[in-house]
Write a protein that binds this DNA or RNA. Structure first.
Lengths: 221, 221
DNA sequence: AAAAGACTAGCCCAAAAGTACTAGTTCTTT
DNA sequence: AAAGAACTAGTACTTTTGGGCTAGTCTTTT
């Protein structure tokens, strides 16, 4: 509070605070190793525990309530699902997702699940330290490649759908089935499926029910 | 306006106005016959045309813009669909649905489509005349049996859903599938289906997409 | 205590949804 | 003119949905 007018000092001070982290990864050695590395490079980072599965991670969070979790996205039990539960139960606990794939589509799922960061596992250690500090300060951190992806796909979501797509979606939201929609719009069922699939992907959803809910929220029905 | 304080006179006067009607039924003889009958019993009722299909009915309405339509619910092209289109394009044109089944579930669909009346075809002619006059005055007319149905089912819709049903519906609206919902709620997929089916029926809908949209409109998601 | 009504859940089946792959057409872009 | 992207559509296949039917358990009503 005293530092409100001195942000540069606040940062230094906060960085001086302890950052208690948990690493969730199904390779225990990786988890331990990264923990040690981080601590050696940034003494304020303290590894309070490691977890090898989603369930373990959740239990560990409930017990130790860390400041931050490094979570492998590919984990027994599902890293994204674990993230969802944790950030619901402990909104203050930040989650940074780590991934090998990088070009993964579940970036969006991860962010929606409440993650505060998204980094490739190949990230350099000093970058990782920087990311941890940034997230601890309340920022959201993504790797350049991921940021690119988000930016490239954002317009799709902002600009919205094509006319055909929108009117098709309206029919979906009315509960009509695909053959019916095809008849109404003068296209084959196959095309209805194709267009709907596009819509679902554009909106980063998974099925027609979610698309219908989206339309309903937009007030299209 | 002058008759605001003399409703009994207003009724007599309005009844004296012409009521231009269209009869939509795929039995031309029935349509003509009823038209004549009505006119003989109530001279102010004038049959301006008959239609044998939904498309014909819509065309005829666009051409002649009657005051009221007697529409058979079971018609080539769909009586309910025709009603929907007509009452969207010409909200002032009243539609009275006629049905043979009476115990039909699409009463609700018909009313939602914009019908102002719902009568069994077996109705007596004087009752039909009375119904036409009433609808023309702006009332909604249903046969006793249908009214009973509406009353019996209305509370369901007013009171809303049980807790289980509501939380299940929320999961549906999230786009989860039935096995998943079962796991989440600690019940079998079969039970999920049963409950969801109940919900869909209670809300007078037809499938999960519509139920999800309902939930979305209620702001549950 | 017996009957009626609810909740759960199984099995079976048909229809629909969703995915993958191929291919022809049209319309840009180069 | 050739290449490529976008759109339509067909076939084939798996999963999910939704409906019908039966049956056991549990609670409430009579």
């Amino acid at each position: 509070m005293r530092w409100d007018n001195f942000p540069e000092m606040a940062q230094a001070e906060i960085a001086g605070d302890e950052i208690r982290i948990v690493i969730a990864d199904d390779h225990p050695s990786y988890a331990r190793g990264v923990g040690l590395l981080l601590n050696s490079m940034a003494p304020e980072i303290e590894l309070v525990g490691t977890a090898g599965s989603a369930a373990e991670a959740i239990k560990l969070v409930e017990k130790s309530v860390p400041d931050l979790i490094l979570m492998d996205i590919q984990m027994p039990g599902g890293g994204i699902e674990a993230t969802r539960q944790i950030s619901e139960e402990f909104p203050a606990v930040k989650v940074v997702m780590l991934t090998v794939s990088e070009d993964d589509e579940d970036i969006f799922d991860a962010m929606k699940a409440g993650a505060s960061g998204f980094l490739p596992k190949q990230v350099e250690v000093d970058e990782l330290v920087a990311a941890i500090r940034a997230v601890h300060r309340g920022q959201v951190v993504v790797s350049p490649l991921v940021a690119d992806k988000l930016l490239r796909s954002a317009p799709d979501e902002r600009v919205g759908l094509l006319d055909v797509e929108r009117s098709l979606l309206k029919l979906v939201a009315e509960g009509r089935d695909n053959p019916d929609i095809g008849r109404e719009m003068g296209m084959s069922e196959a095309t209805v499926k194709r267009v709907l699939k596009n819509v679902v992907q554009k909106l980063h959803l998974h099925n027609r029910v979610q698309a219908a809910v989206y339309a309903a929220k937009k007030g299209w029905v």
